[in-house]
Amino acid sequence: MVVTLIKEAIRVGMVFLYGSTGETIIEKSGHLNLGIPGIMCFGAIGGCMGANLAYGDGTNVSAFGVILSAIIFAMLFGGMMGLLYGFFTISLRCNQNVTGLVITTFGAGVLGFWSTSIGKDGITFFKVSLLFTESMFGEVGNDWFSQIFLSHGTLVYVAIIIAVIAAVVLRRTRTGLSLTAVGENPGAADAAGINVKKYKYVSCVLGAAIAGIGGAFYYLDCTRGSIEPGVIDAMGWLAVALVIFSLWRPGIGILGSIVFGFLYILPSYTTGLGFAEKEIMKIIPYAVTAFVLIVISFFNKKETQPPTSLGVNYFREER
């Protein structure tokens, strides 16, 4: 029972991890992208389409090809929305919050429209999703170690690898140093000869692309191909909250995402709860995030604060 719970927590948590790793990369460049839920919706559409395209009629299918195609399409769809967000906030210098919320609403709407129309055509993703839920390491034993660590689909491991790479790049390379500088003080970064616009665009597109995989992962792995609109954008908000929870560090985010995943599935695994209690339990991740916010503001350490120029658009010749 406990093993199943942890296993499921890791699985659901990876949706948050994709979203929060992407959002962390974007926020490090000083852009608060509230469009993450919408971007994940687009990623879901792209991922499902990409997987189906490679799956074809189900003959001569290589699992690797299908998964790769799903990842590429999800990144493409998510990245497109990231590019749109970047164009609005970096080039046109629109308000970041408004732009982000527009993308969220847009994405949720498009996903709803898409899912009803494919429902009419009778397209299902159940068969293709089997390739995603199947363990990467083939058949594994029933002991707790293999169940928790080895029994997941490929995209779970991809999420962790991406988060680890992001953590290393952000903290250990000059690229990460420059990106942090852009988010802290774009004027200073500019004067130091960093191409601020390039960094912002790349991080917006790349972050959105990674978040996009999260959407695809949710429908192709967690729900086994059944498309239920309205869930993924709610999970997107939790991913944004996880960024704060993880103190803008993808490394901590890996752990945080599993905690969030645990809290997220806990109501459905607890027996004997009424509807009201279940709904209250769903609040816990948000409450935990609020608590973390209180704690970090209490310690007031400069290293745990959000990027200083988060939410502020940069224009070099401003007086």
Binding site: R174, A181, E184, G187, A188, A189, I194, E303, T308
Partner: peptide, 22 residues
């Protein structure tokens, strides 16, 4: 510049090498 273009969060050293390409 009159208003220093430094990143408060970084060490002096990191600020100096910032933006330099390896």
């Amino acid at each position: 510049h009159q208003h220093f273009k430094l990143i408060n969060l970084f060490t002096a050293c990191d600020n100096i090498i910032l933006g330099e390409k390896l």
